[in-house]
Nucleic acid binder design. Structure first.
Lengths: 363, 363
DNA sequence: AAAACTTTTCAAAACGTTTTAAATTTATTT
DNA sequence: AAATAAATTTAAAACGTTTTGAAAAGTTTT
């Protein structure tokens, strides 16, 4: 009411009256239809700008039969870092969707049933589609949305060759390239601090790590590959354990699935009076979150880097295109993280020549 | 398109046909207007339930002239904890607004000008109102929205007697009560680790601390009151400095403006081989965020507690009422935090009898 | 039993846009 | 210059709801 009164909304009819045209023509002119003459289009656009015309979304949505609203579910009670990455994606998606005249609304998933929140959201409002993030393997949310025929895009990928739109980095390669870099530097005992086992990205990184180690003929000691909450504390704890050599020779290199883990690993290494990269090399995967910069580590951290926010525009566009009827198979993106070598990686130390004795990889 | 087809939206007309009534009557029956007979209302409600009727939001919004959408601005590049509290409020507000048939959309404020984001959002879409959180003193966003006559509610308060709707805890009392509790336990050297100076809640807590200390005749040593980013690291750093006694006798008690600060303080105390509460008492203000529970500190933390999410429903309702034309002065809530005494506070130690020598409070 | 109310229902308009089908204008061909 | 084709514009309907003003049905009063 306030707003309406204040901005005195100009309508298509107003422009039509101003120019002696019908609302239909004005609509077509503004929406770039081909059957309107060039001079008419110019006049309309000038008048629209002059009168400060903004299309009424509610009217557009009423006639289009779409709500213009897409949903995203927050997994509540989740850990610190997950919230952080969620926040990053959320904000990025909001902005990207706004550019497509869509709004993003949230729902909270607080229960056991991972699709309950989706169901509730569909009941409560008419949503045009969903964004699914941080998928687990064979994700029940994805299965639900697929079965129901509801448009959705996934940030990530829960199976090898999906039939739905997705955007993800090649997580196998993320791990593989890290291992290859360190191996090229002569490292033989490379530990991998992975993310929580349930996430599909962690599963793929594990595969990338194990495969590449195997391909290089490097044994993986028991306990050298672990799954961890993405927290500084977890990184610290894990690194302390590994550095103590309780599980054979200590690693000469650490690969961390997140910056927070790397932060903890660095602290543990410093506490042991070891040097980076002299005694131990460290690298991490960097989502490029604003509050934990790889550059501000000392030494600056070698990373595989893939800004989370890079995914937002493609995902938003894909979702809107999908809702518009595009072929899901044309809305699939697999990108590669960028390998950025900085100062936290160096040649393996003298005592690092011997690989671990062979033990079967866990799992 | 998909969704529409799938759920085969039933309309008011459908119900009307089913029952031999006009859409007008059906609308009234469903919206609880008085001039519809009891039996008709029952029949309509039964049919609506049976046919799974859900009002089309776009149509409602078109006729009401409101968008049903309210905005909230994310301050990006902000620190870890701020994002966490923002997330909590965001999710809570989303849910609470959904209950009032409104949606919450986000915009990112990444620039210098704190009102640019608001202006941009108003241009881009017709919003019914705004939620402003974490106000600074004499907040420019609030002044902007006030001047423009745009409905908004504030989580917090940027001046003593606002003429806008707000929901806040009494932050003066939060600090005052903490001081009083510790003073009652015999503490005389009480340090206060406050939040960033720019936030109005920090300003009020500072006043509460300083006033109460003065009232009790307790001098405040220089450096005993500090403003900090809400992070574990900041708490640790500050506590180490204070415990080293570089600024006179070390404090026998710490009050922390956030749980993260308290976390760092506890670590610093343990690193110094001091005990809580034997040597030092610690308390904090607890927003009741899901990932940092006061109960899981060892010892369990004494706090002033005020769950952030308690603010969400009132704020959502106030905003929708305001948009509906309610009097802003009836939409103001000032609540009190709950004082929960646990195991991190105890009697002042022997060496704690003497207050600090008087120094003028900083600022 | 007619008149005067009261209660309940309805038809129609409105909100602002898009879209269909028809009508007009303009350009091209004969 | 007429006939035809093409380009441009328009009137009207549609989307689903709320609301206004009028009409119908039901009650009470005379």
């Amino acid at each position: 009411m306030e707003l309406i009164a204040r901005f005195l909304m100009t309508t298509l009819k107003d422009i039509g009256i101003e120019l002696g045209l019908s609302p239909a023509t004005v609509s077509r002119a503004l929406n770039g239809f081909p059957e309107v003459s060039a001079k008419t289009r110019d006049r309309v656009q000038e008048a629209a700008a002059r009168l400060g015309y903004r299309a009424n979304r509610s009217a557009q949505r009423l006639v289009s039969g779409r709500s213009g609203i897409v949903g995203m579910i927050v997994k509540t009670g989740s850990d610190l870092r997950a919230d952080q990455t969620f926040m990053e994606v959320l904000v990025g998606m909001s902005a990207a969707l706004a550019a497509r005249d869509a709004d993003l609304v949230l729902a909270v998933d607080q229960g056991r049933d991972p699709v309950a929140a989706y169901r509730r959201m569909l009941e409560r409002d008419m949503l045009d589609g969903f964004i699914v993030n941080a998928p687990v393997m064979d994700d029940p949310r994805i299965n639900f949305l697929r079965d129901e025929g509801i448009p959705f895009v996934v940030h990530g990928r829960d199976r090898p060759s999906p039939d739905y739109p997705f955007y993800t980095i090649d997580n196998f390669a993320v791990a593989a390239e890290s291992v290859q870099l360190l191996a090229a530097l002569g490292h033989k005992r490379i530990a991998y601090l992975n993310g929580p086992e349930l996430y599909s990205h962690a599963v793929r990184r594990r595969a990338g790590y194990l495969d590449t180690m195997a391909k290089l003929g490097l044994p993986v000691a028991e306990g050298a590959l672990t799954h961890n909450e993405p927290s500084e504390a977890a990184g610290y704890r894990q690194a302390v354990t590994l550095l103590a050599g309780q599980r054979g020779e200590r690693p000469t290199a650490f690969i961390c699935s997140s910056m927070l883990l790397a932060d903890g690993v660095m602290r543990a290494i410093k506490d042991q009076k070891l040097s980076v990269p002299g005694d131990v090399s460290v690298m991490a995967h960097d989502d490029d979150l604003p509050f934990l910069r790889a550059m501000s580590f000392t030494p600056a951290l070698t990373v595989t880097r893939a800004p989370l926010r890079d995914a937002c525009s493609p995902l938003a566009n894909d979702l809107m295109d999908l809702i518009g009827g595009a072929d899901p198979f044309h809305l699939q993106t697999l990108t590669n993280a960028e390998l950025i070598v900085r100062d936290s990686t160096g040649p393996a130390p003298q005592n690092g020549e011997t690989p671990w004795p062979w033990t079967p990889p866990n799992r």
